[in-house]
Simulated assay, not measured.
Amino acid sequence: MTIRPVTLADAEALAAIYRPYVIDTVITFELDPPDAAEMRRRIETVTATHPWLVAERDGAVVGYAYGSTYRTRAAYRWVAETGIYLSADAHGHGLGRMLYEALLEALAERGFVAAMGVMTAGNPASTALHERLGFFHAGTQPGIGFKHGQWHDVVFWQRDLAPRQSPPPEPTGG
């Protein structure tokens, strides 16, 4: 297994991994799966300020994890929201943990002080992953997202990455 920074050439594989999450689940609240062109745009946008990593097995991309802007107000710039997605055949082999640990390390190296996992309630695998990685439950927003004909709660998980300094140094970009 290899974990490396994303490239624009990964866009098609990322779109293929993400597509079933969009179409078949409430894990993401997106309703239309992004194509490779949109994934390339997202890669360019995200990697300007945050890390985005991919996991390869036998030369094929089987998962990805990235940090992104948590909220748009300037006072939040030291906190990153995280996302992680694995291909169906990559689940249950410890890959999610390895990929997420690498992402958290990359976020800390760039000066982020906290990571926020924001997920739909009722996802036991993601809950267990966040708990194993030292995240704590930071709140629940009941009935905040509507997808597949029903309302869903959103759960916030937080992991501190570094001590708070005053004034804090600016996080470094891509």
Rank of each mutant, 00 (worst) to 15 (best):
D10S: 00
H137K: 05
M39E: 09
N123H: 03
A37T: 08
A55M: 04
N123D: 04
P167Q: 03
G145H: 06
A88D: 14
Y18R: 04
T72I: 13
P168H: 08
T72E: 10
A115S: 14
R132G: 04
G143D: 09
T2M: 13
T49S: 14
E44A: 13
R164L: 15
W151I: 04
I23C: 12
T172S: 15
A74T: 02
D153S: 06
H137T: 00
D32Y: 08
V154L: 06
T28Y: 05
R40Q: 14
R57V: 13
P33R: 01
P168S: 15
T25S: 14
L31P: 00
P20L: 06
I84V: 15
V113G: 14
T45G: 12
F156P: 01
G67V: 03
G111T: 06
F156Y: 15
P163G: 12
L14Y: 02
G117K: 06
Q158H: 12
P124Q: 01
L95K: 02
Y66P: 04
Y76D: 08
R41K: 09
F136W: 09
Y66A: 14
G145E: 12
A162N: 10
G83Y: 01
G67E: 11
G67F: 08
F29L: 08
T25E: 03
A55P: 11
T140G: 06
F29C: 05
T127Y: 04
I23N: 07
P163L: 11
Y64S: 05
A75K: 03
L8W: 02
P33K: 04
A115V: 03
T120C: 10
G111L: 06
R41C: 09
A102E: 14
T7V: 00
G83R: 01
M39N: 06
A121C: 03
P20A: 07
G173A: 15
A138C: 09
I84N: 05
E12A: 11
A88E: 14
I3E: 10
Q141E: 12
L86R: 05
R159H: 04
T72P: 08
V79Y: 12
V154P: 06
E81T: 07
G139I: 00
Y70K: 02
G94Q: 05
P20E: 05
G83M: 11
Y70T: 07
H93E: 13
T7R: 13
W157C: 07
R77A: 08
L86K: 00
P171I: 05
F156A: 09
P171H: 13
T47L: 13
A15T: 03
V118D: 14
G67K: 03
P168C: 04
L133S: 15
T49R: 15
L107A: 12
V46S: 11
V61L: 00
A138F: 14
G63A: 09
H148S: 07
Q165K: 09
P124M: 11
